[in-house]
Every structure is written in structure tokens, then in C-alpha cells.
Simulated assay, not measured.
Amino acid sequence: MKQDRVVVLGGGYAGILAAQRIAGRAPAGTRVELISDRPHFTERIRLHERVAGSAPRRIPLQRLLGRAGVTIRVGRVEGIDRSAGTVRLDGGSVPFDLALVATGSRTDWERIAGAAEHALSPCDEEAAERMAAHVASGNLAPLVVVGGGLTAVETAAELAERGHVVRLVTAGPVLPDHAPAARAYAVGVLRALGVRLREETRVAVIERDAVHLADGETIAGRAVWCGGFVPHPIAYDADLAAAPSGQILVDASLRSRSDPRSFAAGDVARVEGSAHLRMGCVTAMPMGAHAADSIVARLRGKEADAFRFRFLVQCLSLGRRQGLVQTVDPWDRALPRFFRGRTGAWIKERVCRLSVGALEWEQRLPGLYRWPRPPLQHGAPLRERLLPR
């Protein structure tokens, strides 16, 4: 009997969930191996807490994958040799029959001159650890958070609540995708915490102890870069078809458009012809689960279903005691209703815990994880209507 080998690249939300699901549902004899550049899973959605002084939130990969029978290999992925059917690592290579790329995203350091050389950041684990060390050193210089999105606002609030002098500078408004009343609430909380805001203000250059604005003004302090994410560059390293964003182009089943043996999920993937999916565990986990189901279908000689997903909310914390949960439509557009204060903080904390809980339970009961989907359109195939969800 042929033993298929499935290799999952990436030890984040999408990769771990996918590896668990494949190992638990694939035909007997299927070998599942997960490659990660570190031996633990990091709760990336809590890194803004880490940089302000909280303890690291890490879980050994063995705890999340050992029961599922997934082989763990620690190493840095350098590319995929599609002709040979191998993944190239910094210390060798791994053969595969099917591969799932879930290598995630990285901090977009290139958007502003000087950011990579001088700025701190909470956007990935390595940068967050460096920033946590700086904050813990007792340096009293102001921290200048650059950005106006979810990560920037959470980081500014967390730092200010713990007594740090914080400035926030953003090229547009704070939380531009939120409803006006929700934005006003977040701005009010930031100001109450002592954060000094500069909206509609562009940053030109970042130096080690100063942020130079496009209008010629200089703000003294250490920059904290929260200017966005870019996908892992593996699409180019593997010569896979990619979107202009650098994400791997996949079809509706999350299979690569240029290699039938490769699939992609999470921040590194872009579904061709579909609406943009916001980067984060909110989309990474559903994509990882669906990619796993597509791979299992392929191993069983069945047709894979199309990926379906709808957004429900955007959650952010405003320190440890307040939060903001913005309701959104299926396409991630803000609706008038939102939850704030302690209620918002409670919901956000439950969501964070649920993300880890889903990984722990999927290992025990493969296929348990579910995610929000839009209603099936009239005329959808009967097979899709009857498929258990």
C-alpha cells in the first residue's frame, strides 16, 4: 500500500490546525510532518501584551501535535523544489507527495525609511522580544507608535496603561475601518490613557531616537513600527504563481494555481478571484482547516469543496480592562453596532482563549473545528448542500 507523505510548512495557527486535521482524517498510513523554525507555537495575537511586559505565551509543538501523530521538524524553510518534490531547509531537505504552505507573514519593514534599522515592533515574535527587552530596561524616552490599525492601537493602549509615555502617529485616521462611533470611543480611551495622537500625519524617516514627519516636524522618541504585514516570500522561492501582494495564488480549494501538489493557507495565500481576506488568525485557522480537508479529499480520490468564509467581528483590546468589538458584515465592512469597555475586553479575551482551545481540541477530535460561512447560494450543487459542516 502506498504511503503518502504530507508536509506542512509553518507552525502557526493555520499550519498546526491543518496538520492535526490531516493526521486525524487522512487514509491509514499517511505520514504527516510539520516544519517550523521554532519548537513552540506563539500566540501572535498577544504580542502587544508581551512588549508591554507580560510573560511570553508559548506552547511546545509537541503538546499540540504529539497526540495527533504528527512528526515535528525544526528548521528554516528556504524554498520548495517542485521538480524533485522536496522542501529545502537550512539543514537538508524533506520529500513530499503533497505540501501545504502556511508560513504566514512578516513585519513590513520596507514601507518607511529607517524602520528596519531603528524601529521596535510587536508584529512578530523576534521583534516583539527585542521590544520587550527595551521596554523592560527602564528607558524613559517616549515610544512613538507608527500606524493606526488594530495592532498599533492595541500596542499604544497596552504601553500607556502600564505608565509609558506614548505618542501615536498615523497617516490616516485611527481605526479607519471602524464605525465612526466606535472610532470615537477608541480615540477617547487612548487619550484618557495619556496617548498623544497625531492623525492624518505621514512619517518620512525613522531614526533611532527620532521620528521625522513629512511636514518637517520631528518627534523625539523610539519608533514602534506597526505599519502592516507582508507574506513570507516562499512563493517566489518556490516559483509558485503569486498575486501582486506576494501571496501564493490558490484556487477555491486552496490548491496552488501552478502546482497541483501544493496547497497554501493563512496569510501567505490569496484565493484567486475572491474578495481580500484580512490577515490574522481569524482567516488563517479556517483556511488551514479547509486546506486540510482538501488534502484529505485528494488523498481519498474525491473532489474538494470550495472555501467559504464570512467575517463576523473585529476585536481589539484597549489595555487590560477595556476593549472594542466592532461588528462587521460578511465582507469585513463595519456595521453600526459595537461592544465596548469591560464587555469588549471580555469578548476579546474569550476569542484569544478560543483560538488556542480550538488547537487543543482539534488534536483530540479531528474535524471538530468549524468557522462562519455565508449561506449557500440558490442553485448550489446538492453535494455541497448536504455536506456536513
Rank of each mutant, 00 (worst) to 15 (best):
V224T: 14
V224M: 13
V224F: 00
W225Q: 12
W225T: 13
W225S: 07
C226I: 11
C226W: 07
C226S: 09
C226V: 07
C226K: 14
G227M: 10
G228C: 14
G228Q: 08
G228R: 08
G228N: 00
F229H: 12
F229M: 10
F229P: 00
V230N: 02
P231E: 02
P231H: 01
P231Y: 00
P231D: 02
P231R: 07
P231T: 02
H232N: 14
H232E: 04
P233T: 04
A235N: 09
A235D: 00
Y236D: 05
Y236R: 06
D237G: 10
D237Y: 02
A238I: 08
A238D: 10
D239C: 07
L240R: 01
A241I: 01
A241L: 03
A241W: 04
A242C: 03
A242Q: 05
A243S: 08
A243H: 06
A243P: 03
P244K: 02
P244D: 00
P244I: 07
P244C: 00
S245N: 13
S245D: 09
G246T: 05
G246V: 06
Q247K: 06
Q247T: 10
Q247Y: 02
L249R: 12
L249T: 01
L249Y: 03
L249M: 01
L249W: 01
L249N: 06
V250T: 08
V250H: 04
V250I: 09
D251Q: 05
D251M: 09
D251R: 11
A252V: 13
A252Q: 15
S253R: 12
S253W: 06
S253N: 10
S253V: 15
S253F: 13
S253D: 03
L254V: 15
L254S: 12
L254Q: 13
R255C: 14
R255Y: 09
R255F: 12
S256W: 11
S256Q: 11
R257M: 12
D259K: 14
D259N: 10
P260K: 13
P260T: 13
R261A: 15
R261G: 14
R261L: 05
R261C: 14
S262K: 00
S262D: 06
S262G: 01
S262N: 08
F263C: 12
F263A: 15
F263V: 15
A264Y: 04
A264P: 07
A265G: 13
A265F: 11
G266Y: 07
G266D: 11
G266P: 14
D267W: 11
D267I: 11
D267G: 05
V268I: 06
V268G: 05
V268M: 09
A269P: 06
A269K: 01
A269M: 03
A269L: 07
A269R: 02
R270T: 08
R270M: 11
R270V: 02
R270K: 15
R270S: 04
V271W: 05
V271F: 03
V271M: 13
E272A: 12
E272W: 09
E272S: 13
E272C: 06
E272Q: 15
G273D: 10
G273V: 08
G273M: 14
S274Q: 15
S274P: 03
A275H: 13
A275K: 12
A275C: 04
H276K: 07
H276P: 07
